[in-house]
Design a protein around this nucleic acid. Structure first.
Lengths: 121, 121, 121, 121
DNA sequence: GTGGTCTAGACCACC
DNA sequence: GTGGTCTAGACCACA
C-alpha cells in the first residue's frame, strides 16, 4: 500500500480498514487480520499496525479477544458512518464549496461533478 | 493570523498570500511585505516567512530583487489558478465524490451542496 | 568538516554527500546518516542538515521513509553526474576557456594543465 | 545587464569593468562613465556603482579626480592581470581539473576544450 | 529512534 | 533598509 505524506500512516491504515468495514468487506463480528499479518500486507512496521488497532479499539470499532484476535464490533458500521458524516458536513463540504468559488469554476467544468453525484441514487 | 494544526504554518501563509494574489490584493509586479514585516504582521518568526517566500519563489509565484524585496511575478495569478485546478480535478474532486458515494448520501442531504454550487454563476 | 565562506554550508554538505554517492561510499538504496547524527559528525546544527537533506530530496537524490531515515535513490548517481555535466559544459568550461583567453596565457603556462588532463585516461 | 545570485552585484560590475580595461575598451588614463551614467546603463542603484568604484579605487585600478570623474590608472591592466593570474593558478585551475577527474570525462568529451585552448596562440 | 517545524536571536552581505 | 544563513533549543508526531 502507498501512503501520502500529509497524514500519519497509522491514520491512513485506519481509514482503509474503516472503509472495508462499511463496504462489507470486513463484516460485523468478523475477525480482521492479525497485527503481524496486516503489517506484512501493508509493508509497515507492526508497531504501526498496533497503534492503528488500538485507536480503532478506543473508538469501539474493533475489539480484542486476547490470544485470538481483533473483531469488528456490532456498532462499527453505524459509528463510522456517523463520524464521517459529521466531519463531512462540518469541514469537507464547506471547504469544497469554498474551493469551487475561489477557482471560479464554470458550469462546464463542474458538469462531470454533477454527473457523478446524480448517477446512482 | 490564526493557524490550524493540520498543515504547517509556512504552508498556510503561502496559501494566504496566493489567495491575496488571485484576489488582486497583491497585484502583479507589486512588492509584497518584507520578510520581517510580514513576520510581525503574521505574528511568527522571520525564518518561517523566509521559508514561505522561498517556496513561492521556487514555484515562480514571486521573485526576489536583491536588497529590495520580493515581487509578484507576471505569471503568478495564472500559475496559482492552474496549480490549484490541477490539484482540484486530480485529487479533491474525485476524493469528494468518493466520500459522497461511500457515505451513501441521499439527494436530500446533498441539496445544500447543489444550492451553493448553483448560486451565483 | 571545514567550510568555505563563498558558498552556504548546507550547499557544501550537499556537494559532499553527492560526491560520496558517486564515489560509492553511500551506495544506491543505502541509508545515509540520520539528520542529527550527520549534524554531530559535521559539527553543524541539525536544521542545517535538514535543509541539505530536503534539497537533495527535491532533486530525487535521496528519499525519505517516514520514521526510518533518508535513503539514496536508485537514480541518484546518474542524476548527480548528469546535473554536474550539464553545469560543466554550460558554464564552467566556457567560463574557464574565457578566462584563459582573457589572461592570454601562453602554452608554457598551460602545460601543467594539459599534463594533468592527459594523465590517467 | 543581468546578474547572478552567487556573487554580489557590485562585484560582478567590478569584474565587468576590469575586463573592459584589459581588453582595451577602457584604455589607460581614460575617463570611465560617471556613477549615475553607469547606474543607468547597468540598471542598478547608484549606491551600488559607488561601492564598485570605491573598491576599484582601493585597488588602484581607477582613481578619482574630484568633480571631474574616475580615470583608469596607468598600472591598472598589469595589476588586474596579475591578480587574476594568481587566482587562476591557485584556485580555478585546480578546481577545474578536479571536476574533470570527478566526472570522469572522456577524451572525446574534452576534445572541444583542447580545440579551444589550442586555437590562437 | 526517526524526521519536521517553529522560535529566538545573532551575524553577514548587499542595496 | 533588504534578504540569507546559521545556531541553539524546544516541541511534536510518527515508527
Amino acid at each position: 500500500m502507498e501512503f501520502k505524506d500529509s497524514k500519519g500512516i497509522f491514520q491512513q491504515i485506519a481509514d482503509n480498514i474503516c472503509e472495508k468495514i462499511i463496504s462489507g468487506e470486513y463484516p460485523v463480528f468478523s475477525k480482521i487480520p492479525s497485527v503481524r499479518e496486516q503489517a506484512a500486507v501493508m509493508g509497515v512496521n507492526h508497531n504501526t499496525i498496533m497503534r492503528t488497532y488500538m485507536e480503532l479499539q478506543r473508538e469501539n470499532i474493533i475489539n480484542n479477544q486476547r490470544g485470538i484476535g481483533y473483531f469488528v464490533t456490532e456498532e462499527a458500521p453505524q459509528r463510522i458512518v456517523q463520524l464521517r458524516k459529521e466531519e463531512f458536513f462540518r469541514h469537507e463540504m464547506p471547504e469544497f464549496i469554498r474551493q469551487v468559488k475561489l477557482l471560479n469554476l464554470s458550469q462546464e467544468e463542474l458538469k462531470p461533478l454533477f454527473d457523478q453525484l446524480n448517477k446512482q441514487p
